[in-house]
């Protein structure tokens, strides 16, 4: 690795360590009670001590987020395919897709939770509503961003609609799709957590949001922080996975992924 690369990796880690050390020092020095602000060491210890309950909750939240993300991908891609096949359909339906985006999920989540009795599908629906829009809008834009010269070439060679879609539009849309995926992974997780907050402690299921609510009510602030840390780390890992997938698909040809030599 070159020095610049080492720096690129090390710099954020060093910054993180400094923040943690300063945080711990301030908490120790001012003797801040742990029910106000726990130090990072205590949070780490709580994370280990409560791992059984926390990991179980993480599993649930992660399941909601991943199911919502999968639903967003499938629905987003299908809707985008339909939109590029028919301009009339796109014009009539796109405003309602925007509606999805601008509706505050906290406002409609209680309704969905009432309508759908089972908590898991209810939460997945809420998270999907949050995560869906970037998939639809990015994939639609990508499918439409076709080189007009290539489109002429396909026409001249008698390409069918299907051939034009699979061999021209889909590859063209890939960079846009992956840009949307990076946004939607984060949104799916946020959607899962927010929906569970709204569902409240009444839900039979117990995700990380439930743990945060419970810990807050019991003034178990170290556990609240531990759950927060888990959510954050999960979000970062999901983002990295989405980035990696995009890089794998685009590294040979797209400017965003090819290292400049």
């Amino acid at each position: 690795m070159k020095r610049a690369q080492v720096f690129e990796w090390m710099a954020p880690i060093v910054v993180g360590c400094i923040v943690l050390v300063v945080w711990q020092a301030l908490v120790d020095f001012f003797e801040v009670p742990s029910y106000l602000v726990p130090g990072p060491w205590l949070v780490a210890k709580t994370l280990v001590a409560d791992r059984a309950v926390l990991l179980h909750s993480l599993g649930f939240t992660l399941a909601v987020a991943i199911l919502a993300l999968a639903a967003s991908i499938v629905i987003g891609v299908v809707v985008a395919f339909v939109f590029v096949q028919s301009r009339a359909l796109e014009m009539s339906l796109f405003p309602y897709v925007v509606l999805l985006q601008v509706t505050p999920i906290v406002a409609i989540a209680p309704l969905i939770i009432i309508w759908v009795n089972d908590p898991l599908p209810a939460l997945v629906i809420c998270a999907t509503i949050v995560a869906l829009f970037p998939m639809i809008s990015n994939t639609t834009l990508g499918l439409k961003s076709v080189d007009t010269g290539l489109l002429d070439l396909f026409r001249l060679n008698g390409a069918t609609r299907w051939q034009t879609l699979t061999r021209l539009r889909v590859p063209t849309a890939l960079p846009y799709f992956f840009a949307g995926l990076k946004i939607s992974t984060g949104l799916a997780l946020i959607g899962a957590v927010v929906a569970e907050f709204v569902a409240g402690t009444g839900g039979t299921a117990s995700g990380l949001a439930y743990q945060i609510l419970q810990a807050g009510l019991q003034l178990n602030i170290p556990r609240l922080f531990a759950a927060l840390v888990l959510i954050t780390v999960t979000g970062v890992v999901l983002f990295l996975i989405a980035s990696l997938l995009g890089w794998l698909a685009l590294r040979r040809w797209h400017d965003s992924a090819v290292a400049r030599s």
Binding site: D147, L150, A159, L168, W253
Partner: peptide, 20 residues
């Protein structure tokens, strides 16, 4: 040149034959 950036040279040249 109007080439498909995601396909290598061989696949670009083969395109008209594949479509037909």
């Amino acid at each position: 040149p109007t080439l498909m950036p995601w396909a290598n040279v061989r696949r670009n040249v083969r395109l008209p034959l594949e479509l037909g």
